[in-house]
Nucleic acid binder design. Sequence first.
DNA 1: AAATAGTATTTACGATTTGTTCACATTCGT
DNA 2: ACGAATGTGAACAAATCGTAAATACTATTT
Lengths: 229, 229
Amino acid sequence: MATAPHILICDDDPVVHESLGLYFENEHFTYSSAYDGRDALAHVVSDKPDLIILDVMMPEKTGIEVCREIRKTLSTPIIILTAKGEEIDRVLGLELGADDYIVKPFSPREVIARIKAVLRRINEPQENTSFLRFEGLEINLDNYQVKVKGELVPCTPKEVEILHLLASHIGQVMDREQILSLIWGYDYFGDTRTVDTHIKRIRQKIYYEGAPWSLITVYGVGYKFEVNS
Amino acid sequence: MATAPHILICDDDPVVHESLGLYFENEHFTYSSAYDGRDALAHVVSDKPDLIILDVMMPEKTGIEVCREIRKTLSTPIIILTAKGEEIDRVLGLELGADDYIVKPFSPREVIARIKAVLRRINEPQENTSFLRFEGLEINLDNYQVKVKGELVPCTPKEVEILHLLASHIGQVMDREQILSLIWGYDYFGDTRTVDTHIKRIRQKIYYEGAPWSLITVYGVGYKFEVNS
DNA sequence: AAATAGTATTTACGATTTGTTCACATTCGT
DNA sequence: ACGAATGTGAACAAATCGTAAATACTATTT
C-alpha cells in the first residue's frame, strides 16, 4: 500500500459496487469485487487487499462467516456493511474482529472517512500525547485533570476524554460517530446526540471570554477544536 | 524548478544568510536575500522563488505578516524560522499557510532536509488529498475551511465538499449526476438543479477579479474547475 | 441492602442554519 | 430567432444544533 490502497468490495448487490466504485475512483483507490461469500474468500487470497468491505447478507456464506474465516489467518482490516434493521449483528461483527461497521444506506463521505480512519489506525502507531497544553488550557489524560488559566476545572471522565480527543486533532472535524467509536468503543449503541450534551457541558466549563481556542460546530458534520480563530 | 530550486532567505541577521547560503551552495541550490519584511515581499515578486525561508522577527514587517501577505496571492512553499524562546505558536504559523517551521539554532542537515521534504511534498502527486492549495485559494476538507487570499471565507459543508470535489479534478468536467452521487450519495433522488444553486453560491463566495482559477460551466454537460495556464 | 451522590443518557423543543425548489431572467448553441 | 440549458434571487422546507430537564445508571457510603 505504498500509494493508494486496494479495497475488496463483497456484496451481492451490484448497486453497492457501482456506488462504492464511484467513490473509490474519485479517491484514486483501486478495488475489486466479490458477489458472494465464497467468491469473497477467493478474492481475499488472490487480490491481497489492504481493506475489505463485507456485506452481512450474502449468498453462499454470510459476511459474519467470511469475517470469521478471514480472521483465522489474516489481519487485513475489515469493515462490515449492513442494512438498517440488521443492526443486532453489530456487536457480533465487531467481536469477530471487524474493524468498523457501516449501516446502509451510507453517504460517500462516511464511507471514505471510515476507510481512511481504519487505515490510519492500522498503519500509524499511536503517539502518546496524554498531556496537551494550550494558552490558558491544559488537558491531562493521565490524571484526568483539566486546567483553565491554571485553575483546576472539575470535569467528568467522559468530558476529559472528549476534550482530549478533539484537542489532539486540532482543526480536524470529527463526526459524532467517530467520537462515539473512539471514546465509547465500537460496540456502543447510543444516541449520537449524547455527544452534543457533553460538548455543551465542556463548553460551559472551559470557555472564557477571549480564549484563543474553541470547540467549533461544523454544521452537518461534527465538532472540531480550533486554535486562534 | 526544472533542476535546482531557488530559495529566498528573509532574515535581518546577516549571519543566517551566510550560513544558509553556504549550505545551499553545497546543495547547488540558488538563493537570494532579503533583510526586512518589505524587502522580502519585493523579492518574492521579482525572484519567483521555489521556496521562501521567513524569519519571524524582522524590521518593517514581521514574518507572520509577510506570510499572510504572500498567501493572498501565491502558493509558494514557506518555511518559518524562529528563535528559541520566541513563543510563536507552531499552530498559528501553520494556520497562516506556512509549510514547515524551524527553530534556531538549526543544523545544516536539518534545514536541507526540511526544504527537500517540503519541496517533495508540494511537487509529488498529492498524497494528502483533503487539502488543496491554489494561488489565492485553499480548500481544507479536514477543517471544512476555505481561504481566499489567505482570508477565511465562510462556506457551508456542501459548498466545501463540492468545491473540493471539482478542485481535486482540475479541468475534468463532472456532470450533475456525478456530483450528486459523489457528494449526496447513491440513495439520493433530488433535482439536479440543486447543484446549480450551490455552484452559484460558491462562485459568489470565492471569486475575485483576476483569480487564476474558476468554476466553468460546460454547456449541456456539467461543471469543471479550471486553472489558468 | 438501601440510600445517596455523582455521572451519563435520553428526550423534547425552540432556534438556527442549511438545503431545496420555484419562478423568472439570461445565455447558449443551432 | 428559437428552444434548451443555465444563472439568480427569494421563498420555503428540512435538517441540525443548543439547551434544559427528566431519567437511568454506577459506585460508594451508610
